[in-house]
Amino acid sequence: MRRNGAIFTPASPPEALRDAAQAAEDSGVPELWLWEDCFRESAFATASAVLAWTTRLKVGIGVAPMPLRNVALTAMEIATIERMFPGRLIPGVGHGVLPWMAQVGARAASPLTLMREYVPALKSLLAGDEVSTSGRYVSLDRVRLDWPPAQAPAILVAGEGPKTVHLTGEVGDGTILPGGSNPDRVARTLAMALEGRAAAGRDDAHELVVFVPSAFGGDEARSALAEELASESGSVDPALLVAGDAAAVAEAIEPFFAAGATSVILQPRFGEDDLTDFMAGVGEVARLVTS
C-alpha cells in the first residue's frame, strides 16, 4: 500500500514538536518523520515523546547516524520504544552528514564498511539473537538484548550514491532518499537497491521512502518553495515543485509512486511558519492518496 506522511524538521525548536505532532494526529497524517541533525534534536527522545502524546500516529526516524551511535545502544533504543509503542516506530539509520561526523570525531574512514557491519548486527540484536562479531567498526562479545521487541521492526537505510544504495538493498529492509530526489532518481535508486537485494539472495519486498519538499497555498507558497529549491540546487526541477492545494499536491506526488516509491513524505519549507496548516494539508493529501 502507498504511504504518505509529513516531516517535522529540526529547523523548528523542540518545544514546537508537541503542537505539530498533535496537529498531525488530528489531521489524519499517517506518519510523522523526525531527523537527527547535528547539533539540533535527537531522534529517539523526540520519537518517544511524539508516540506518548498521540495514539495512532506512526513515527519515522530519518535517520539516526550510525557513526554517532554504538549499534548496541541503537538496538536498545529501538527495542525499548517498540515494546512501549508496538508497531508505531519506523527506524532508519544512515551514514550521517560526514562533516558533522568529523566535527564530533566519529567520521568513519569507510562508511560502506560501517553500514555492512552495523545493519546486520542491529537486525540480529532486534531479533533477540546473541551476537558476537569483531569487525572494523562493530565489535560485540555475546551481546543479547534482555528486552527485545516481540516483533522486530523493519530497518530502513538511507543512501544516495550507487554503492551505498546497492548496499541498502543487500542489508536493509528499505531505502530512504533525501529531499531533492525526482521521480527519475527514485526509479534508478529502486533498481539499484533491488540489484543489491538480488545479489544477497533476497526476494522479499523492499521499501523506498522519499522526502519531498512541498508547500500548501497559492502563488505565494509556490514561489517561496521555488526560491528555496533554487537556493539549494541552483535551478528548479519542475517535478520537485510540489505546491498548491491538497489535490494539486496529491497529483504532483503521483509520479513518485509510479516510479516505485512506497512512501512519499512531505517536507515543509524551512521557512514554513504554520505547521498546523501544513499538517492539515498533508492529512488531506493522505486521504486523496489512499482513496
Rank of each mutant, 00 (worst) to 15 (best):
residue 117 E to R: 07
residue 201 G to C: 09
residue 14 P to G: 07
residue 162 P to C: 03
residue 290 T to D: 10
residue 99 P to W: 03
residue 68 L to A: 15
residue 25 E to Y: 00
residue 261 A to N: 04
residue 268 P to N: 06
residue 75 A to T: 07
residue 157 V to W: 03
residue 108 A to K: 13
residue 250 A to K: 01
residue 9 T to W: 01
residue 81 I to T: 05
residue 122 L to A: 05
residue 218 G to H: 09
residue 246 A to Y: 05
residue 239 A to C: 11
residue 254 E to A: 15
residue 283 G to S: 05
residue 251 E to W: 04
residue 193 A to P: 09
residue 4 N to A: 10
residue 247 A to H: 11
residue 228 E to V: 06
residue 247 A to T: 12
residue 193 A to L: 11
residue 21 A to K: 02
residue 261 A to E: 04
residue 109 A to N: 12
residue 271 G to A: 13
residue 85 F to N: 03
residue 277 D to Y: 07
residue 147 W to P: 03
residue 166 H to M: 09
residue 18 R to T: 14
residue 179 G to V: 08
residue 217 G to H: 10
residue 220 E to A: 15
residue 183 P to E: 09
residue 96 G to F: 04
residue 90 I to N: 12
residue 123 K to F: 04
residue 234 G to S: 00
residue 38 C to W: 15
residue 238 P to T: 11
residue 212 V to L: 14
residue 137 Y to T: 04
residue 277 D to L: 12
residue 264 V to T: 07
residue 19 D to W: 01
residue 53 W to E: 05
residue 14 P to M: 06
residue 78 I to A: 03
residue 18 R to S: 12
residue 131 V to S: 12
residue 218 G to D: 10
residue 104 V to T: 14
residue 79 A to W: 01
residue 248 A to W: 03
residue 46 T to I: 00
residue 70 N to L: 03
residue 40 R to K: 08
residue 98 L to F: 06
residue 182 N to K: 08
residue 159 G to Y: 09
residue 63 V to N: 05
residue 252 A to I: 13
residue 62 G to N: 14
residue 177 L to S: 13
residue 242 V to L: 11
residue 240 L to C: 13
